[in-house]
Design a protein around this nucleic acid. Structure first.
Length: 350
DNA sequence: AAACCGGGGCT
DNA sequence: AGCCCAGGTTT
């Protein structure tokens, strides 16, 4: 038996009796699908009943006031779903004569209906062969077929939709779609799936390769640090003060300039007034120039750098670890981050 | 591609 | 505390 047939057989034996199943009424299916977006069945169920009782068809829904919809939606979260539903209901009444669309290409045009919901409504109401891809489908496909592409990358989304379309039973699209999702929700759960009793265990890549717990893969959004580097340009004849960076941070072991990092942006004058500046370079220093802030973008960090030229270069400087005086003619042999090289190259005409 | 939207259950 | 839920819209 193939993938789809196994799932459907499992589904027919184990499915929950849910009030929006066994209906072809696109309005009712739409109501349930919007409510169930990012929402557990148990949480959405009472709302579904309340909405259906108060608005038994799209005509009555479209006639509601937004305040009434939002009040009935209260506690469910993602309140734009309720507002979008009202827009869509009114559009269905105005443009489709109150006949809720069942074609994917029409449904996808409506507010609050994306690819998943359009596929769900069209397949459930008219068996249009469109594969649904939701959180459950990602999980089932990733595990069974061993797909390691992250589900939240553009490449991954395309790939999973493609695989879902390939395994779809096009003659029984609605049944197939419901089966995959129910299977993902009830058996192939995110944590502690019931692999021991799974009808697909023999063909499951993740189970055979001990990868159930790591699939599906998801790209975690790396938070970008905003950092503010205040560099000091201190020349003395044909030399300048440089800094060899340590092992820990970005640009490890490369050269930049003496640096005071701040938590946020400060103007050059504010930097000059900081006690840390006087402590490093002496009390009698004077700012003789400053660059505009420059932004340098790294994968995980945005560096906001500015260059402040100070004088005199006298003996008050307390050399910190890594600082060294270098001949300007040596600069061309020193490895520097691009933002430093660009500045020095421009300043000294290297 | 990432931010934003939300309450609630599970581990 | 972090992940996930029958995702979609906006920037």
């Amino acid at each position: 038996m193939d993938f789809s047939a196994e799932l459907v057989q499992w589904y027919q034996k184990n499915k929950r009796a849910l009030p929006w199943r066994d209906t072809a009424n696109a309005y009712v299916i739409w109501l349930s699908e919007i409510i169930l977006q990012q929402t557990r069945v148990e949480q959405g169920m009472p709302y579904f009943y309340r909405f259906l009782e108060k608005y038994p068809d799209v005509i009555s829904f479209a006639a509601a006031h937004e305040d009434e919809i939002l009040k009935l939606w209260q506690g469910l979260g993602y309140y734009s779903r309720g507002r979008n539903m009202l827009k869509t209901a009114r559009q269905v009444v105005g443009q489709y004569g109150g006949e809720f669309p069942v074609a994917y290409t029409e449904l996808i045009k409506l507010k609050g209906i994306g690819g998943y919901t359009a596929a769900a409504i069209s397949s459930f109401s008219s068996d249009e062969p469109r594969a649904v891809v939701d959180g459950n489908v990602y999980r089932v496909l990733a595990r069974y077929f061993g797909i390691e592409e992250p589900i939240n990358s553009n490449k991954g989304k395309k790939l999973f939709q493609q695989v879902a379309d390939e395994v779809l039973d096009k003659d029984h699209a609605g049944l197939h779609n419901q089966a995959v999702m129910e299977f993902g929700a009830m058996l192939c759960k995110p944590k502690n799936p019931d692999c021991a009793v799974c009808p697909l265990r023999n063909g499951c890549y993740a189970l055979q390769h001990n990868k159930v717990s790591i699939l599906p893969q998801k790209l975690k959004t790396v938070k970008i640090r905003e950092r503010f580097f205040n560099y000091f340009l201190i020349t003395d004849g044909d030399t300048l003060l440089m800094n060899k960076r340590g092992e820990e941070d970005i640009w490890a072991n490369m050269y930049d300039l003496p640096l005071i990092e701040t938590a946020g942006y400060l103007t050059p004058q504010e930097i000059m007034n900081m006690p840390a500046t006087a402590a490093a370079f002496g009390k009698n220093i004077v700012m003789v120039g400053a660059s505009r802030p420059k932004k340098h973008i790294l994968t995980h960090q945005h560096i906001h750098a500015q260059f402040i030229q100070i004088e005199p270069a006298g003996g008050e400087i307390k050399y910190q670890s890594g600082w060294l005086r270098t001949g300007i003619k040596n600069l061309k042999n020193m490895a520097m981050p691009k933002i430093i090289f660009l500045f020095l190259n421009n300043f000294f005409n290297l």
